[in-house]
Every structure is written in C-alpha cells, then in structure tokens.
Amino acid sequence: MQQFINGLSLGSSYALLGIGVTLVWGVLGILTFAHAQTMTIGAYAALITLDRGYPVIVGVIAGLVVAGLFSGLMDLALFTPLRRKRAPEFAFVIVTIGVSQISDAFEASRTRSQTLPFPRKGFPVEPLTLLGRNVPRLSLVMLVTSVIVMAMLGYWLHRTKSGTAVRAVAYSRDTGELLGINSKWIFASCFFISGTLAALAGIFLAASSGQLSHSSNDAILLLAFAVIVLGGMGSIRGAIVGGLLLGLVSVYATVYVSSVFREAVAMLTILVVLVVRPSGLFGEKATTRV
C-alpha cells in the first residue's frame, strides 16, 4: 500500500510533466527539450518567493506564472518566427535544446552549481494515517492535483471553444488561420499552460525531496517523453495513465529489484507496451494528414 501510494505520487509528477509535454509535442507537434529547465525555473521562482517568507500559495503561484511566461515567451520570441518561415521540425528541436542549455548555464551560475534546500514549511508534508499505514500527505495532494488538472485540460480541449481552436490549429495552422483563429496566440497560450504544468511538477518534486539544483530535473525529461510515447501521442488521458504506470513501475523496481535498475525497468515496460501497441496505450492509430 505504502509503495503503491509512493508510486502513484511519483507517477503523478511524471503525469503532470507528461501532460505539459503532450500539449506542445502531442498536440502542437513541437518536441521541447526545454521542458526540464522550465520545470526547474518554476521551482526556483517558488523557492525564492518562499525564502522571502511568503506563504506557500504565493510561492506556488509565482512558480507557475514565471515558468508559464518563460515558456510562452520562448514560443513568441523563437518559435513564432520559425513557424512564419515554415522551418523544418528539426529546427524547433535544436532551438529547444539551445534554450535548455542556456538556461541551465544561467541557473548553474546563479546558484554556483549548489543544491539549495527547498523550504517545505507550509507544504502538507506530514504523514497521514490511511488504512493503518503512513502515507505522505504531499503524495496524495500531488495525485489529486494531477487528476484535477487532467480533467480540466481534457474538458478544455474537447468541450470549449478555445480548446477546440487549439485542436484545429494543431491539426492545420493554415486552416485555423483561414477560419479566423489567431494561431500565434493559440501556440503561445499552450506553451504558457505547458510551462505552468511543468512548474507544478517541479515544485512538487522539490517539496517532496526538500532540495533543488539546476540539474534536478534533467533525468526526468526523458521519462516525460517516455510517458507520452507510452500513453499515446497527443492523448491527455494517455499521458496521465502512462505517468502513473511509470511511477508505479519505478517504485516497485526500486523496492523489489534495485534502485540501479529503476530507469531500466521503467524503459523495459515501455518497450513491451510499444511492441504490443506501437501507438501507445491511448494513441489513435497512426494516420496521415491529407
């Protein structure tokens, strides 16, 4: 039970991150390597705010806004011109790698490459007794938050006018424009939302470990991509199920095999799923856009 909750909680941070990446990769088709840095920037913004004595809620909001703006401005400043020039997909990938390296260097220099303690005061870190077991309260909060965020995002994309416009632009930017949709703002707002989700995951992870460094989230990026491939490209539901599954597998692998094999077992799971279902758990069959 304990391990199950731990797995779900780790998985929900994967899922949050996965949803954010899904939005820009699965939906808009931009594979962003800057996501881990966005996550870290959000967590730093929260850390700085909390260190100045502001309450947790203010710290979290500051983290979300800063990471959202970082992500949204990256789109407006760098991707909008690329899109206007109809740059090949690979150009976007290289730019995100560049942004990630630059911001990593910046963070490393600001913190002198040190791991900073992340203030946990005010976060729900004390354990909760559930069915006779001790369960970290923060894990439950993470889990519940991810599920709520997933539901909201799914509702937005499929049931609202602006969400439908996102899917229209994602399918064809030209067609969206012909219908009177300002695609530039659609892209920028998706990047903003994706950034806030990354920050949320980053803050959760920093609060549960109690520390933060410029390279805290580097290893997680690959997992976020794995989550998406596992869940199925472009599927929000897939990202959350993929994230939770990967979290559970990681925790059980650590407990029953060895922490050395944690990532390996997680990747093995993905391989098995992909061999059986190449489009991922919730992915639609690969279709060609005509």
Partner: peptide, 11 residues
Amino acid sequence: VPEGRAILAPL
C-alpha cells in the same frame, strides 16, 4: 474554402 477542402479531420 481551400483546395482539397482542409477538413479538420479529428473534429
């Protein structure tokens, strides 16, 4: 109304 209709297929 563009050439090739440009229907938003998933919608």
